[in-house]
Simulated scan of single mutants.
Amino acid sequence: MSDSISARLAELGITLPEPAAPIAAYVPTLEIGGLLHISGQLPFRADGSLITGRLGADFDVAHGREAAERCAVMLIAQMKQALGSLDRVARIVKLGAFVSSDPHFTEQPKVANGASELMEKVFGDKGRHVRSAVGVPVLPLGAAVEIDAIVAVTGG
């Protein structure tokens, strides 16, 4: 499966970045009880720049979807580093999306679709998951979106 996932990433034009190091007192991943818990990941572009801004005030849904997709790429990079191989991914169980939003912005689910749709493109049916998408007034470093994940894993 790893070869097919690697091929799928290449087909989608996705190169996994170096996983982001924690910016505070926590670990990026924790595997326990057959689940890999991944701390919230920020939306870094391929050039390393952070996608910032507040949805509904500074930017639109398209900007947010791009940010959510970049969070998903970083989640996959964290999976690969923690598991050694993406072939250990049995299922993306849950994504939690936090969207920096104006109080009147209500399209957080559309923003989070950027990550959800990428997970399904990469992992197929194993990428379908449950999800929450909430608006928050501010995120670390001014990020537009932050997403965490729970992933079911095999072996170990």
Rank of each mutant, 00 (worst) to 15 (best):
T106A: 13
S85H: 03
L83E: 01
L75I: 14
A90T: 04
P109F: 09
V122P: 12
L86D: 06
S132C: 08
A72Q: 02
A72T: 02
L75W: 01
V93C: 00
I76V: 15
V73D: 12
V73H: 11
S116P: 03
F98A: 08
H104Q: 14
E120W: 01
A72D: 04
Q108C: 14
R65Q: 14
S132E: 15
G124L: 08
Q108D: 09
G84T: 08
K94D: 03
G84W: 11
M119S: 09
G96P: 04
S101N: 12
E117G: 04
D87T: 12
V122L: 06
M74R: 06
R70V: 02
A62W: 01
I92H: 01
A115M: 00
E117I: 03
E120G: 02
E117K: 06
V111W: 08
G127N: 04
V93R: 06
H129F: 04
A112C: 04
T106N: 13
D87P: 15
S132L: 07
A68T: 13
A62L: 00
D102Y: 07
E120S: 00
G84Y: 12
H63D: 05
R88E: 02
V134S: 14
R70C: 05
G127Y: 03
K80I: 02
V93P: 00
S132Y: 08
R91K: 13
E117A: 06
K80H: 07
T106P: 08
M74E: 11
F98R: 06
D60M: 07
R88K: 10
S85L: 03
P103K: 03
L83T: 00
A90N: 07
S100W: 04
S100K: 13
G124N: 11
A90C: 05
Q78G: 15
E107S: 15
G84F: 13
R128Q: 12
F123D: 01
T106R: 12
G124E: 13
K126W: 02
N113T: 14
K126R: 15
G64E: 03
A133H: 02
N113P: 06
E107K: 15
S116A: 12
M119A: 10
T106K: 13
H129W: 02
T106F: 08
M74Q: 15
S116I: 09
E107F: 12
G114Y: 10
A90P: 04
S132A: 09
L118V: 00
M74F: 03
E117M: 05
E120R: 00
K126H: 12
I92Y: 00
A77H: 05
D87R: 15
V93N: 06
G124S: 13
K121A: 00
S100H: 15
F98V: 02
H129I: 01
A67W: 05
S85P: 08
H63V: 01
G84H: 11
R131E: 11
G127P: 04
L86R: 08
A90W: 01
S101H: 07
K110V: 07
R128D: 06
D102E: 13
S116F: 05
P109W: 08
P109D: 07
D87L: 14
L86A: 10
A77Q: 10
P103E: 05
M74W: 01
E69H: 09
Q108M: 14
A82G: 06
Q78C: 15
M74N: 08
